[in-house]
Amino acid sequence: MDLGLKGKKVLVTGGSKGIGKGIAAGFLAEGAEVAIAARSEEGLREARTELGNVHVIQADLISEAERDRAHKEAVETLGSIDILINNVGGSSGSSVEETPLSSFEEAMQLNYLSAVQFSKAVLPDMKEKGSGSIINISSIFGRESGGKATYNNAKAAMISFTKALADEAASFGIRVNSVAPGAILHPSGNWQKRLEENPEKINQFVKDEIPAGRFGTVEEIADVTVFMASQRASWVTGASLNVDGGQSNMNM
C-alpha cells in the first residue's frame, strides 16, 4: 500500500533508539525526509549509520530551551515539518511515597511538556499549509493503572492533551492522535533488561498478561504510527490506539 508519504518532512523526538528509531526507519522506507532528535551524540551517530539518509539533532529534550533549539534546527534542516512524532520519554521512581517530587516534575517535562511544546511549535506552519499530522507515543499505562506513577501520570496527560489539541486543530486540516504501546521488546528497552535479569519472572509475565503470548516489536509500533500519520487515516483524529497484543484490560 502506498501511504503517500514520499517527500513528507518528519521530525521524530527520541529517535536514536528503540521505538523512535523504528518509527524513523518506517518513514524513511516510505520515502519521507526524516530528522531525529535525541540527547546522546553516540546514539545519534549509531542511528545515522544504521538508518542512512536521516538528519540528526542533538538536544536534551527535558529542557525547554533545548526543545526550542531542536525545533528551529529541524525547520532549518527540513524546510518545514509535515509530521511530528512526539516519542521522547522515560520512566523513573518507584512508589509514590518514595519518589521525590523532582522525579514527577522531570517525568512531566520529558514525557508530556515536550510533546506540548513541540506541538505548539509546529502548529502555525501546519495551519498555514492547511495540513499536518501530530502523533504522540503514549502507553497503555496512560489509559489504565500499571507501571511507575511518574510515567503513567505523564502519559495520561499526553492522551488528554491529544484529544484537546485534535479538536482545536481539526478545522485547519491537522490531525492529532496517540499510539499507546504495550510491552515492547528491544535491545535498549527496560523489558530487555528485566528479561536478562530474571527470565523466569518475565516469561511468566508474558504468559499471564499478554494474550498474544509474546512481546511486541518496534516494527509493529512503527507500522501503525506511519499509517496513522498518512492520509490513509484521514478520518482519524483525537484517537488513542492501543498496540499491545491484547495486554490492556480496557474495553475501549
Rank of each mutant, 00 (worst) to 15 (best):
E64L: 01
E64T: 07
E66M: 02
R67Q: 05
R67H: 02
R69C: 00
K72W: 08
K72Y: 01
T77N: 03
I81V: 04
D82P: 07
I85F: 14
N86Y: 05
G89C: 04
S92R: 07
G93I: 05
E98V: 04
E98L: 03
E98Q: 09
P100L: 10
S103W: 11
F104H: 13
E105Y: 13
M108G: 12
Y112Q: 14
Y112K: 05
S114P: 03
A115S: 08
V116D: 00
D125K: 10
E128Q: 12
E128V: 11
G132N: 04
S133V: 05
I135T: 09
N136V: 07
I137D: 02
I140Y: 07
F141I: 09
G142E: 01
R143I: 11
E144G: 02
S145V: 10
G146E: 03
K148P: 05
A154H: 14
K155Q: 08
A156Q: 11
A157R: 11
A164H: 13
D167L: 14
D167C: 04
D167Y: 14
A169S: 11
A169R: 03
A169W: 02
A170I: 12
A170Q: 09
S171K: 09
F172M: 05
I174F: 03
R175Q: 09
N177D: 14
S178Y: 02
S178R: 08
P181L: 15
A183F: 09
L185M: 13
H186R: 12
R194N: 05
L195K: 10
E196W: 13
E197Y: 07
N198M: 07
E200K: 15
